[in-house]
Design a protein around this nucleic acid. Structure first.
Length: 206
DNA sequence: CACGTGACGGTTGAG
DNA sequence: GACTCAACCGTCACG
């Protein structure tokens, strides 16, 4: 939904300089990456991109030590809304990692029971071809001619279930590993921008 | 003052 | 290969 703004006039009224690009402080940090912006707390962030893992980790760690969210927010120069979100998410999921950004939801090509059946067939007989599965769905009366998924749909389902699905291990282990690796695959990571500010002791700067 | 929350502008990536 | 679109992001401001 596109947030019926007219219907709910109580929340945010667009103020003169509501967001960063407009108004007085369109503070941009010139970096080799050219992506950095500065928030009201003086912290650097990349609009639309998650905070680097070490910051997220720091937020959780500080909260764990009983540091209040507002203090964390000021120390790390991250908006309190963000601190709140990250902490909330951490409590709910146990993970500090951001969600998967972008992409489309896999198309719901088959009814859940059909989906399950395909999975069943495949695990019983891993060598089974898509068209064989399709055939079997018809034969077993799971589907009829009208609603049986196409061969390509079946193979897509199989691919998503059996092919190269790495177990999602959102562990601190993974986070630590990523931190050590310094996220080498990120095209433009904020790490590079505020890396030294953070790693050489934001506490000291305070 | 501290905090929760919704709108916003932005980025990303599967389809 | 360009495009679409729904997911997520962090910030900001309101309450």
């Amino acid at each position: 939904m596109t947030a019926l703004a007219g219907g709910l006039p109580r929340m945010m009224r667009p103020s003169p300089h509501q967001n960063f690009p407009r108004g007085g402080y369109s503070l941009e940090v010139s970096t080799p990456l050219g992506q950095g912006r500065v928030n009201q707390l003086g912290g650097v962030f990349i609009n639309g991109r998650p905070l680097p893992n070490h910051i997220r980790h720091k937020i959780v760690e500080m909260a764990h030590h009983g540091v209040r969210p507002c203090v964390i927010s000021r120390q790390l120069r991250v908006s309190h809304g963000c601190v709140s979100k990250i902490l909330c998410r951490y409590q709910e999921t146990g993970s500090i990692r951001p969600g998967a950004i972008g992409g489309s939801k896999p198309k719901q090509t088959a009814a859940p029971e059909v989906d399950k059946k395909i999975e069943e067939y495949k695990s019983e007989n891993p060598g089974m071809f898509s068209w064989e599965i399709r055939d079997k769905l018809l034969k077993d009366g799971i589907c009829d001619r009208n609603n049986v998924p196409s061969v390509s749909a079946i193979s897509r389902i199989m691919r998503s279930k059996f092919g190269g699905v790495a177990e999602d291990e959102d562990d601190e282990e993974v986070v630590k590993r990523e931190m050590e690796e310094n996220e080498p695959r990120t095209k433009h990571s904020i790490d590079g921008i505020l890396g030294d500010r953070c790693s050489c002791g934001f506490l000291g700067a305070f």
